[in-house]
Write a protein that binds this DNA or RNA. Structure first.
Lengths: 235, 235
DNA sequence: ACTATCCGCGAACACTGTTCGCAAATGTCT
DNA sequence: AGACATTTGCGAACAGTGTTCGCGGATAGT
């Protein structure tokens, strides 16, 4: 651990060549967590999957936190950025869809802190800033927009995966229903009463809600003359 | 663990009375994690702070996950909901400010999953729905608005606390600066070049950015005739 | 008083992250 | 070629983790 994770020079050194690379380690970690969940991520399991020993891992990373950072940047490399068209709405939606798909493929992404991001994550950041550039926002507003959009995607994906887990393991919405009768939550009850025409867990509504949220933020942030049809449907 | 966490009847039972209550346990956990961080939360430490043994804790909760759920709902009880005024912007801002303060007081809140929420969390949900009610949104849009706002507050608070930690532990923005020279991130570089007049880590700008984000979402979501001055400042 | 029931908890099990020191392998220099 | 410096891989250990089991004792209803 002479330098930080991402500033590693691969010049020839004195001793024997390292058997693995940071990329290998990241790939193995991602593969493991994708299939067995975050709880399965342990030094010994990763080392076993790598064909080495737990203690050897500490020649590459300085601790378990580094594994998480490595994983996050590894999957951030899955982005395929199309050339920017100049249409804020289209460009932002394109990258947001990719981000949502990424979070669906790797639901554990929500649990890794966004600190010290690697080159791929910075590339994502750069692309999103570029997509927002035609709006001619100042730096503060741009960073806010990026945070707003990234946060929306993360939260939306988290809600989606949590819904999947809840519908599999049984006790989900019915638990809320019994709480509605126990305590008094007038506004929540009114909301539930007004909307029993459509099943709220309709999977096709998710896509519409997703882009509606994006458009809502864009309409609030970007100038209206750059927007096409910013208003979301309302009853 | 006969029933779920929140549906616990306190009727007289056969055996001896339980020494502690779920509220006590939650309070002890919150106190511990507030002072020593999430890593310090262990069964044995909680039991020690309670004056009992680790195995005894399993008479109250079914595992460590229950502790997290207990803690989240415990601090959600710190909300003090003012009567709704009917002004969407004012009411939403009021609860958002409280939520931000809550996240500042308990930064670990970001790390606990939002699944199976307790009565206090549902009360927060209910209040936020009530604050959004004058906008006359349909159920889907309302839930989306709630998710949007809650997510924004959570992300904002996380960014704030992460900034605090980064500024204390040294390597933060300068690490990004060296990456800017190493890879090519044109849009990010342009953004940094355009905005070196003001220090981006100015703590006083945080408040403005916070309400600007809220207003941005409200302006995108709520009808414009319910808004007072929805446009955010732009250069 | 009897008994069903529940509580507290000591002990154990399988793991966890992390450190230390040593042997072997490799590059550079004389 | 040989000596040296350096770096890797790893066995072993340590402190601590979540969780389970089964016991003894306390309690309330009958």
């Amino acid at each position: 651990m002479p330098t930080s994770l991402w500033l590693r020079s691969d010049e020839p050194k004195r001793g024997p060549r390292p058997t693995h690379t940071l990329g290998d380690i990241a790939a193995v970690c991602v593969d493991l967590v994708d299939r067995e969940g975050m709880r399965a991520l342990s030094m010994r399991r990763v080392a076993e999957a790598l064909g080495t020993s737990a203690a050897s891992l500490y020649r590459y990373v300085s601790g378990k936190d580094d594994l998480l950072a490595l994983m996050a940047d590894h999957v951030a490399g899955e982005y395929e950025f199309a050339p920017l068209s100049g249409d804020v709405r289209a460009d932002v939606l394109a990258v947001a869809e990719q981000s949502r798909a990424l979070h669906q493929r790797h639901p554990w992404l929500r649990e890794v802190p966004a600190t010290d991001m690697g080159p791929n994550t910075v590339a994502y950041l750069d692309h999103l800033i570029g997509a927002l550039a035609p709006a001619k926002l100042d730096a503060t507003s741009t960073m806010m927009g990026v945070a707003l959009l990234s946060g929306w995607v993360t939260n939306f994906a988290a809600q989606e995966s949590a819904g999947d887990v809840a519908s599999e393991s049984g006790g989900g919405a019915e638990h809320i229903a019994t709480m509605l009768t126990q305590g008094d939550y007038p506004h929540l009850a009114a909301l539930f009463a007004h909307a029993d025409k459509a099943d709220p867990t309709d999977p096709l509504d998710n896509d519409a809600a997703f882009v509606a949220g994006i458009e809502a933020m864009l309409f609030g942030i970007a100038p209206p003359d750059l927007q096409a049809q910013p208003r979301i449907p309302r009853s």
